[in-house]
Every structure is written in structure tokens, then in C-alpha cells.
Design a binder for these strands. Structure first.
Length: 776
DNA sequence: CCATCATAGATTCATGAGGC
DNA sequence: GCCTCATGAATCTATGATGG
């Protein structure tokens, strides 16, 4: 074995390692990755693609297998690889001697799916492995063929069992047609498909082993086994045979994707010009076996090409299906990759318009869901799609889609995709060939590009510098900062043009457009923060802002041009405190409303975080009092912590529950109320976690709270000032100057904080006023 | 209806380079 | 030294086709 491995072709070794990996087999050092970690200290499992490893490593890994069945599998794969090589070699050396039958065998066993589908665990005892016969050249030339097909039922243990076997020889003579008695209880006969009933099986006496025996005499001397999807049949019959022709491997429809294996029925229609069975009719294994034999004979005897044109009928059917899909798709939009934690109600907010929403839950827990939106007319669907914020991209098949990032009422940010179900009107003609389709795509992407090219640069080129003077550039904005909140960063009348992050979870940028250079300048000066130069020498300020969600964020505000006269507007001017932010026009009603709704929802929630993984979510119910539902989030990392939301029916209940939590109240970084809770698990061990409110109290009484907050700060400032004075007074030694400086610094920081708070309060007041005037 | 399979698309993760 | 970005590999998911 060692010798065989050492001299094997790289491809064989690579396939072997991949197969071993796929089957989850482990050698003495464990699986492939574990082996790498032990064997290769330098790269370890980071370079785990077998095809990028040397033969030596591959062989060393394969030699760690010592179990008998593993060794047998390895030997078999080696044999398989050797066979393939031999056949290729045979073909190259004597191309004229290859019989048509042998050519089909070669096509089958060199098919890329052959190794995964036709390597059976035939070392097991109840398997029947056929013998080819001694003389290779004779075997290669044998043209005897036998087509088989089976009908299977599902058993109560979920496995499949063969219940009927049909076999047909080269002359289409039926040599076997028997029912098989399964050795397990049948769960589902699937009679409409198999055509087999419980009654049929009452008379059956044969077992799989009996069938193996009956087939044995046909399968010597290099007889070729023929079938459609033959590996399925061989698997249930537990027969391992080396010379096979699988018609689903051999034939392919022109222009069909690689993965689309042809169905037996379609092949019959296209190659033989006759229908195998009426639609919805049950299968008959004798007919199916005969059909695959006829297909092979068509190639062998009539020289039919194995790459076949789709029949007129197929094309028509395809076209019809596509048209139907198009028609239905015109009034629909498709949402996909929706994270599991997005409640379906919140999806309504993603799009505007009148539609019905059908959500398909994720297949696995914690997976993604999809949803279909049905509109009343194609126009409405189109309009709703146009209104979605985001860049249009094409999915794989050329359908337009946009990535949407939405903020949930829970404070989480989720991203999902909105996809149209049809191509854009202008290119909606249905293409029938692949080439036409790709051409169409090229045209459309080109068209998009030229549009983009012609619009943006033209505008920008008119007078770049003049235009830039009226702009400020916000950059390094964390992705979780909603663009609406950026309005609070600057005062003045401006428009905001948001550039989405280049990568998910990355930072995004925004261009702020003012009416005049002066306004832009003024707004920049009013930003709280120190001016620094960026790399290119443009003035910029770092801004720390507090989001309505309570968390903090920082970003940069940069001028787009050099300062012409830096002293023109002084930074020490006092007008910044009282200036009120004007509401920009592009802040739509919907977003405002959505924000309000989110806040309302947030009020009813508490956020538990840093919950150790060993705390069962059930036990969390003991930490919080009251009636609530618990939404547990999955941990982001193994061995880390997890978080959870506690949702109450009303904000009051949430507040009450928070107050009742035992623990010292503190403020987290973003200023939200938070308590650390230590408690005992039922297992006896202790645990601790944090309970946090989701919102900072706002408007009405909340504003008062904010005001109090400010008063607190003022007090603190007074105190600091007094301290400063006292220090000054007590000793003016130089040794204390450092301390004084520090205190001064603190003072300044506090002032900044107050300014920021002021701004937020102003902001909120504005919003409140606006809302009240609206509701009147 | 179900299971299987391969694939494409998307995200996550790890890593190195480079800015601040 | 921390942070981001770019890159590529690994991993996950939905999909669509097959078979019964």
C-alpha cells in the first residue's frame, strides 16, 4: 500500500483525501485538518486544500489510516484512479480500437461525479462485487450489455429499500422482472411513483441476496451494466460492478448547465422521439431499463451524438414555464437572506406600497428566511423596488437586486436582499440560448456603466472646486450609525448623500451638500472637536456622537477644499451653542415614523448581555421579574457570551422590571442605564450578566431627565472649577500645573459633552414640535 | 412528498499591509 | 499598538435538478 500511494498520481491522492474528508474518516491523528495541525507546525490546517499540498503530505496523511475498512476504501479509490488512467491510456494508444460501448463506459467512469457516486462500501459482507475476468483486453472489448432499474420504497427507519427489479438485455429481452421483499417495515409505498402496492409485495419472496444471485450469471466476462442514475440501483442492490454506462452521465443537453443532469423521460423524447411514460404515470422498472438500453443502442448502433439538441417540445415547454414565471414575477418582489432575528412585521417597513407578504421561515434554526411580496400591478412592484435605498446589482441570473440594511426596533441592524423576479422591462425579451443571454447581460451592464459615467463625472467636472466648497465629507462612519442620525452632527441647512460601505460591516461615507461655501464653512466650524489635517492636508475634525439607540460612535468631518483664509471664521465664536439645526427636506415621513416606532418598541425591552454560555436561557427568567418574552441571540463565537432581549408588553413594565433587578445601577458607555447582576444557577455555580435598558429616556419626562443630566454636569463643572480655584489658591507651585492642566482638560471635555447633549435636546425638541404640529 | 447532490452567492474568518 | 482594508479560504445557505 505504501508503495502504491508513493507512486500514485497527484490527482488520485487529492481526490482520495477529499473523499476521506467528505466521509468524515479519521486516521490515527484524526481527520485531515487535525493531521495537518500535528504534521505541519508552520501552516497547520490553514492550508487545507489538498490540491495545494505536496504528494508527501498527502501520502503521510493517508498512511495514518490503519482500520481495515478505511484501508480497503483507500485501496479501492486507488484502483479506481488506476482504472481511469488505464482507460485513458488505452484510448490514447489505440483510438480506433475503442468500441462505441467502451467509449460510453469511459465517459461514465471519467465523469466528474463518478468518484462520489460510484464508490460503494462494497467491502461490507453483504455486498456482491463482480469479477471482470482475467484478460483485460478482452474485457475492454466485450459488448455484452444489461440494463437494470429498480423501484424503491421508504422504510420506517428512513432508509430506502428495493421492492422491484427489472433487467433487459441488449436485444431488449426482459431477463428479470421480480418483486423483492424488503426486510424492514415499509413506511411509504409511494405507489403513484413506483406503481408498487402492498399487495404486490405479499406474494414476493425474493431477497436482495437472491437478486444478486440471479444477476450474477449475467455479470461476468466484462458485461456492461446500463442504467439511468445507475448508482442508486447498485446501492440498494448492493452490487459493485466496474463496467457501467450511466445514461444520466453520458448524455447532455446542449447549453444546459453542468449540474442539470437530463431526465430519462426527456432523453427518450429527444433521442428516441417517443415519450417514456405519460405525465404523472407511475414508473415501471422494466420500461425504464429498456429505455436506457435503447438510448445506449441509439449511440452504439446509430451513432447518435451524446450532446443532444433540445427538442422543439422541450424548448416550447421551457419557454412557457419561463413566461409563466415572468408573468407571475412581474407583480412580485422577492426578499431573501433575511436573518432569523428579523420579525416579519418589520419587513413591512422595508418597502412602501400596497402588498401582501408571505414569509417562508428559515429551514434551519438560526438560518435565513425568504419572503415574497405580491403587488397588485407590475407598476407598483417596480415603483416599490425603485424606492428602496441601495445600489442595484445583478444576481447570478441577471435579475436586479438591492442590498438593504435596516435597523430593527430591537436596535439590531439587519441586511437583506430585495430582488425583482423579472429582468428590467427594457431587456425582458426571453432569450433561448446561453450566448444570447450573456450578450444581453453585457449590454445591460454596459448601459448602466455609461449612464453612471455620463452622469456623475459630468456633474462633478463642471467646476469641481467650486462645488466642493459647498460640501463637507463625513467618513469612517460606522455601519451601525443610521444615516438619519448624521443630521444631528452638523447644523445648518444641508442635503446628505450617503455612500454605502464597501464591505458589509465596514464604514461608510457621506457627502453633505450646503447651499453656499459660507454655510459649509460655518457648519464645519461649529462642529465640536479639534481641527487636524488629514494626509492630503485637508482640515478635518473627529466627532463623537451619541446615537438614539444609546450607543456611541465616532466619525470624521472633512472639508473638501483647503482653507483659503483660516482666520475668517473664528472657532471661539459663541453662536454655536444657540444655533438650531434646521430640518432637511429629504428626511421622509416614513423614516421618522419608523424611528419613532423603533423607539417605542425599544422602550418595552431590556437587553441582557455578557451572559456566559453555561447559563441556560431558562435560568434568565429568574433574573427578571414580570411577564415577558425572551429573545435569545446566538453567541457570535464559540466559548464567548451570548445576549438576549427581554420584551415586555409596555414600557412601564420594562421600567418596573429593571428597577426590581438586584444590582448596582450604572451607566454604560453610551449613557444607557445598566445593572450588573450576580446570581446563582440551579446547578449551584454562580454567574453574572448585565441588564441594560434599550433607550435613553426621551421627550416629555425624558427631556427633563436629560435636563437633569445637564444640571448634573453643570454641578460637576462647578465642582471642578472650585477645585481648580482651591488648588490655584492653595499653592501655585509648578509641580501642580500638570494636575491643573488635567482638570482643565476634564472641564473642556465636560463642556463638549454638554454641548453635544444640548444639541440632542434641541434636536428632540424640534422633532417633538414638528410631530405635534403635524398631529394637530 | 422527501432525500440527495453540486453549485453559486454570500458571509465569516484569518492574515498581512499600511495609516494614524 | 490599534484599527481598517484587501484578499483569499472556509463555511454556510438556498436553489434547482435528479430519483423514488
Amino acid at each position: 500500500m505504501e508503495h502504491k500511494l508513493a507512486t500514485a498520481e497527484k490527482k488520485v491522492l487529492v481526490d482520495l483525501v477529499k473523499l476521506v474528508q467528505k466521509r468524515g474518516l479519521e486516521g490515527e491523528n484524526g481527520g485531515w485538518k487535525e493531521f495537518l495541525n500535528v504534521y505541519d507546525k508552520k501552516f497547520g490546517s490553514s492550508l487545507s486544500d489538498p490540491s495545494r499540498r505536496s504528494n508527501d503530505v498527502l501520502v503521510a496523511f493517508l498512511l495514518t489510516f490503519k482500520k481495515k475498512e478505511d484501508l480497503q476504501l483507500i485501496a479501492r479509490v486507488m484502483q479506481c484512479g488506476a482504472n481511469r488512467e488505464l482507460i485513458e491510456k488505452f484510448k490514447q494508444e489505440t483510438p480506433d480500437k475503442e468500441t462505441p460501448e467502451q467509449r460510453l463506459v469511459r465517459l461514465t467512469i471519467t465523469h466528474f461525479q463518478y468518484p462520489t457516486n460510484y464508490l460503494f462500501p462494497s467491502y461490507a459482507e453483504d455486498w456482491f462485487v463482480t469479477e471482470l475476468g482475467k484478460k483485460k483486453s478482452k474485457v475492454m472489448k466485450s459488448t455484452r450489455m444489461l440494463a437494470i432499474d429498480c423501484e424503491m420504497v421508504t422504510c420506517d427507519d428512513g432508509t430506502e429499500a428495493v421492492v422491484r427489479v427489472g433487467a433487459v438485455d441488449r436485444d431488449l429481452k426482459v431477463v428479470l422482472d421480480k418483486f423483492v421483499k424488503p426486510d424492514k417495515t415499509v413506511f411509504n409505498y409511494k405507489t403513484d411513483i413506483t406503481g408498487v402496492t402492498a399487495e404486490d409485495l405479499e406474494r414476493a419472496t425474493l431477497s436482495v441476496t437472491d437478486i444478486q444471485k440471479k444477476l450474477r450469471r449475467f455479470l461476468s466476462q466484462g458485461t456492461i451494466l446500463v442504467g439511468h442514475g445507475l448508482h442508486n440501483d447498485l446501492k440498494v442492490l448492493r452490487i459493485d460492478h466496474a463496467r457501467v454506462i450511466d445514461t444520466s452521465f453520458v448524455f447532455e443537453f446542449e447549453n444546459a448547465p453542468k449540474t442539470h443532469r437530463p431526465s430519462l423521460n426527456n432523453l427518450c423524447k429527444a433521442v428516441l422521439g417517443q415519450e417514456l411514460r405519460m405525465p404523472d404515470a407511475a414508473h415501471n422498472c422494466v420500461h425504464d431499463a429498456a429505455a436506457s438500453m435503447k438510448l445506449v443502442l441509439a449511440v452504439v448502433e446509430k451513432g447518435v451524438d451524446t450532446t443532444i439538441q433540445k427538442s422543439e417540445e422541450m424548448l416550447v415547454a421551457e419557454k412557457k414555464r419561463q413566461e409563466e414565471r415572468q408573468e407571475a414575477g412581474k407583480t412580485q418582489l422577492f426578499l431573501h437572506k433575511i436573518p432569523h432575528y428579523v420579525p416579519s412585521e418589520e419587513l413591512q417597513g422595508v418597502l412602501n406600497g400596497d402588498f401582501t407578504l408571505v414569509v417562508k421561515p428559515p429551514q434551519k434554526e438560526g438560518g435565513y428566511s425568504t419572503a415574497v411580496l405580491d403587488f397588485n400591478s407590475p407598476e407598483e412592484a417596480n415603483e416599490a423596488f425603485e424606492n428602496v435605498e441601495g445600489d442595484v446589482a445583478k444576481d447570478k441570473s441577471g435579475l436586479p437586486q438591492k442590498m438593504v440594511t435596516l435597523k430593527l426596533s430591537s436596535g439590531l441592524v439587519a441586511s437583506l436582499y430585495v430582488r425583482k423576479m423579472v429582468k428590467d422591462e427594457s431587456l425582458s425579451e426571453i432569450s433561448t440560448t446561453k450566448r444570447a443571454r450573456t450578450e444581453e447581460n453585457n449590454v445591460s451592464s454596459k448601459r448602466q456603466k455609461t449612464e453612471d459615467d455620463s452622469e456623475e463625472p459630468k456633474e462633478a467636472n463642471v467646476n469641481q472646486k467650486e462645488a466642493d466648497k459647498t460640501k463637507l465629507f463625513l467618513h469612517k462612519i460606522p455601519h451601525d450609525v443610521p444615516s438619519q442620525e448624521l443630521h444631528g452632527v452638523l447644523n445648518g441647512d444641508f442635503t446628505l448623500e450617503v455612500k454605502p460601505p464597501k464591505r458589509k460591516g465596514g464604514y461608510y461615507n457621506a457627502v453633505v451638500g450646503f447651499n453656499s461655501p459660507e454655510e459649509a464653512n460655518k457648519a464645519f466650524e461649529n462642529v465640536v472637536g479639534d481641527v487636524v489635517k488629514d494626509k492630503a492636508g485637508l482640515p478635518q475634525k473627529m466627532v463623537a456622537l451619541k446615537l438614539s439607540s444609546g450607543s456611541g460612535a465616532s466619525l470624521y468631518v472633512r472639508k473638501m477644499v483647503q482653507d483659503e483664509s483660516p482666520g475668517e471664521i473664528s472657532t471661539t465664536e459663541e453662536n454655536n451653542v444657540s444655533s438650531k439645526r434646521q430640518k432637511t427636506e429629504d428626511e421622509s415621513e416614513e423614516t421618522k415614523e419608523a424611528n419613532v416606532n423603533q423607539r417605542e418598541a425599544d422602550k418595552r425591552k431590556l437587553f441582557l448581555h455578557k451572559i456566559p454560555l453555561n447559563v441556560p436561557s431558562q435560568e434568565l427568567k429568574g433574573v427578571i421579574t414580570g411577564k415577558f418574552t425572551l429573545e435569545v441571540m446566538r453567541p457570535k463565537r464559540k466559548g464567548g457570551y451570548y445576549n438576549a432581549f427581554v420584551v415586555f408588553n409596555s414600557p412601564e413594565e420594562a421600567n418596573k422590571a429593571f428597577d426590581k433587578v438586584k444590582g448596582e445601577a450604572a451607566k454604560e458607555k453610551g449613557g444607557l442605564a445598566q445593572k450588573m447582576v450576580a446570581f446563582k444557577l440551579s446547578s449551584g455555580s454562580g454567574a453574572s450578566l448585565y441588564v441594560r435598558k434599550m433607550v435613553q429616556d426621551e421627550s416629555e419626562e425624558a427631556e427633563e431627565a436629560n435636563a437633569n443630566h445637564c444640571e448634573d454636569h453643570l454641578k460637576e463643572i462647578e465642582e471642578l472649577k472650585e477645585k481648580l480655584k482651591a488648588k490655584d489658591f492653595a499653592n501655585s507651585c509648578e509641580g501642580h500645573s500638570k494636575e491643573i492642566e488635567e482638570l482643565n482638560h476634564k472641564l473642556k471635555a465636560k463642556e463638549h459633552q454638554i454641548q453635544a447633549q444640548d444639541k440632542i435636546i434641541d434636536n428632540l425638541k424640534m422633532k417633538l414640535e414638528k410631530k405635534q404640529s403635524k398631529s394637530r
